[in-house]
């Protein structure tokens, strides 16, 4: 017994060091892989895409067994290979900033890593470049909010005046969104504030003679605020086998949509 124990502890030192070093490297790679997974999730990827990308990336740097679990707010990965043993990392993912362009870039990057076996430094540099890619300037975003509101006000049968009013309210909502974002209020509170103020402005603009129907103005703004990406993604998640995430995201999106419609309708009924 004593002898066995000794042989266990007097393992070949060089071998042990090599293994520890390999584990260190694996940890560093895994950290980058989780960065990619996190950014993907935040910019609006479906769960299956995130898990699939992580699996491929880990396989590309030599992991033999990869167990990934991702839900909407967390990623857990354990990889195993004889050279470095089992390595686990988890990542809490908070805050979403939908950006389909970034998602596309991340997707390309992960393909590139898998086919060209980028080094750690190259991966880092590419990630930094993606992080630095500018979003559309604030002016374009204001225009976007107005465009969406006005289009859907017309789409659902509003007059041209309604569309103009809805567009203007859309611009106000963009400013409001910026203020609320800076206070880091939760999504429901911010949706309620936005929708109540939107409803109020819609009612006021009809009273002031700009716009004819409170309903049509509000509908344009509702379409703007409704969580479209989570809704479509949650359905795709559920039917690709990621039921937990699908349900999580689905109920979140439905509650948000209800809160938004409620805010507008409540103000419209009160005025």
């Amino acid at each position: 017994m004593e002898q066995r124990r000794q042989s266990f502890f007097s393992a070949d030192d060089a071998n042990y060091l090599a293994r520890a070093e390999a584990a260190d490297r694996a940890n560093e790679y895994l950290y980058r892989v989780l960065d990619i997974g996190q950014y993907m999730l935040q910019s609006g990827a479906e769960i299956s895409r995130v898990e699939d990308s992580i699996r491929r990336l880990c396989a590309s740097f030599g992991a033999e067994r990869i167990d990934v679990l991702s839900i909407t707010s967390s990623i857990v990965v354990t990889i195993y290979a004889p050279q470095f043993g089992a390595v686990t990392q988890t990542r809490r993912v908070a805050g979403q900033q939908y950006d389909l362009h970034r998602l596309e870039q991340l997707n390309q990057l992960s393909r590139r890593i898998c086919t060209q076996y980028l080094s750690l430094e190259e991966t880092e540099a590419a990630l930094e470049e993606i992080r630095k890619t500018p979003q559309y300037p604030f002016g374009v975003q204001l225009f976007t909010y107005a465009l969406i509101s006005a289009s859907f006000s017309l789409f659902f049968g509003g007059s041209v005046l309604d569309a103009v009013a809805s567009g203007l309210i859309g611009v106000v909502l963009r400013y409001l969104d910026r203020i609320i974002r800076s206070t880091e209020a939760n999504a429901f509170l911010s949706a309620l504030i936005c929708s109540c103020l939107g409803g109020l402005l819609a009612a006021l603009s009809v009273k002031a003679g700009l716009g004819e129907s409170v309903d049509m103005i509000s509908i344009g703004n509702i379409m703007l605020l409704i969580p479209g990406i989570p809704l479509t993604n949650s359905l795709r998640d559920m039917f690709t086998g990621n039921t937990i995430s699908g349900l999580l995201r689905f109920s979140e999106a439905i509650l948000l949509a209800l809160a938004i419609a409620f805010g507008f309708a409540a103000v419209a009924a009160l005025m």
Partner: peptide
């Protein structure tokens, strides 16, 4: 590129925002 990019944007006109609003309107009234 990811299919999400086209699905999310193209599905928007189908989202029943008007119907949802009227539902809530009746509820509040």
């Amino acid at each position: 590129c990811p299919a999400t990019l086209f699905l999310v944007t193209a599905a928007v006109p189908l989202i029943p925002g008007g119907s949802l609003y009227h539902t809530m309107r009746y509820f509040v009234e």
